[in-house]
Amino acid sequence: MAVGKDGRRIVAENRKARHAYFIEDDLEAGIMLQGSEVKALRQGGANIAESYASVEGGELWLINAYIPPFKQAKTWGHEERRRRKLLVNARELAKLHQGVSREGMTIVPLELYFNPKGVAKLKIGVAKGKKMADKRETEKARDWARDKARLLRARG
């Protein structure tokens, strides 16, 4: 597990999200987990790359996130890809619903982590899909920034 900013222990990261989407807004959400899921997250191996969030019936749900089974739980374990409820306040939920109702917007998970208090949190973003030309432009800008840093380092 990597340690991020502010003492967060990052469990899973969705690196593809920044490549495939323009992230317009992000926020932190709590996540309702079973005991075996929390223990499995602490061991690592979770994957949020293929998952997404959806507003359904006035609630926010995380769909298709993978949390590996906890071997010691045996009989009282959990489903690996079950729907998990995300906890946000009403104002944030309304803002997310408004963002998704616009054309081409979706809610993507960016990071799953434990905050310094040891509580599991999910960083989600309201995003708009990139087209192929946008992806190439982003890659070109990133390559130029890398080459520029290399040139400045060589001269200085």
Rank of each mutant, 00 (worst) to 15 (best):
K5I: 08
D6I: 04
A12I: 02
R15Q: 11
R15D: 09
Y21Q: 07
Y21W: 06
F22D: 05
D25Y: 09
L27W: 05
G30V: 01
I31K: 04
E37T: 09
V38S: 00
A40N: 04
G44F: 00
N47I: 00
N47T: 07
Y52C: 12
E56S: 13
G57A: 02
E59H: 14
L60M: 10
L62G: 05
I63V: 14
K71E: 12
T75I: 15
R81D: 03
R83L: 04
R84D: 06
A90W: 09
R91F: 13
K95V: 15
L96Y: 03
H97V: 13
Q98R: 13
Q98Y: 09
G99E: 09
V100S: 00
S101D: 05
R102N: 10
E103V: 07
G104W: 09
I107Y: 02
L112V: 03
L112M: 01
Y113M: 08
F114H: 06
F114P: 02
N115R: 11
K117Q: 14
G118E: 02
K121V: 05
K121A: 08
G125A: 07
G125P: 02
G125E: 07
V126W: 01
K128E: 11
K131A: 11
K131V: 12
M132G: 09
K140W: 12
A141N: 14
A141H: 14
D143L: 15
D143I: 15
R146G: 07
R150T: 02
A154S: 07
R155N: 11
G156S: 12
